[in-house]
Computed example of a mutant assay.
Amino acid sequence: MMDRYYFLLLGTAIPYKHLNKIVRKFNNYYERASPERQQQFVEIVPEYHIRRFYDPLPYSMQMTGVMVEPAYLNRFLEIISRLNFTFILCHYRHGHLETTLDGIEYRVTSYRSLEDVVYLTFEYEEEIDGRFADKLLTLPLEKQVASAPGIKTREEYQHLLDTWVREVLAYPAKNA
């Protein structure tokens, strides 16, 4: 079975044209490989966060998954790191958490990086209070995602989520 990872892309200034060009090049190597060799490749599935959820990317700019030979994974990450945006390589497993504060339910997806840091990203859903999402997008990038190293228990996940939502809600509103 092929190894899989999530490629968590954070920010609004992601250079999609350059990123897609790099992805196409790596995927081209996969397409030209023999079926036996293809089984050894690693699949990296993109997950986009912290962009205007109501202004989706044009289809032509959305990155598809990338197939990388394990021997070239570090090279791929090195090339991507030169593009000057925030990305995190995460285990393929992920989870979902929710909390309710003042009668409003907040849902997040949790990812665990290869460095054992947990990241929580807000799930944009139409039925929740859009003011939270709008406020979240005005915060500095490091406040738009919750993260903490070494989290293992359900209680630790829940504490991180509750703390993060309260911090976002308490952050001074811009142009309020």
Rank of each mutant, 00 (worst) to 15 (best):
E156R: 08
M1P: 05
H18R: 12
E47R: 06
T100E: 15
Y92K: 10
P140N: 11
D102R: 15
L136R: 00
A170S: 15
P140F: 09
P149T: 06
R166E: 09
H94E: 14
T99N: 05
A146R: 09
D55T: 11
L136P: 02
H94M: 12
V145K: 11
H159C: 05
L83I: 09
V118R: 12
G130H: 07
T86C: 08
I80V: 15
E98N: 09
W164Y: 04
Y111G: 06
R37H: 08
K21M: 02
G95K: 07
L89M: 13
Y6S: 04
P15T: 10
M2C: 06
F85D: 06
Q158T: 12
T153W: 01
D55F: 07
Y106I: 06
S113R: 10
G95D: 14
L83R: 03
A133T: 05
F85R: 12
M63V: 15
P58N: 13
E142F: 12
V45H: 00
D134T: 06
E69R: 15
V117S: 12
Y111T: 01
S110I: 00
T99Q: 02
D162M: 07
A146I: 05
V66M: 05
F41G: 00
I44A: 03
I22R: 03
N28W: 09
M61V: 01
N175F: 07
Q38G: 00
E69L: 14
F87E: 05
V66F: 04
G130T: 07
E156K: 08
I50E: 00
F122P: 01
L83T: 04
Q38N: 00
P70W: 00
G65P: 04
Q144W: 07
T64V: 07
I22H: 03
A146Q: 11
Q39H: 01
V117A: 11
I104C: 07
L161E: 08
R24Y: 09
V45A: 01
R37Q: 13
V68S: 02
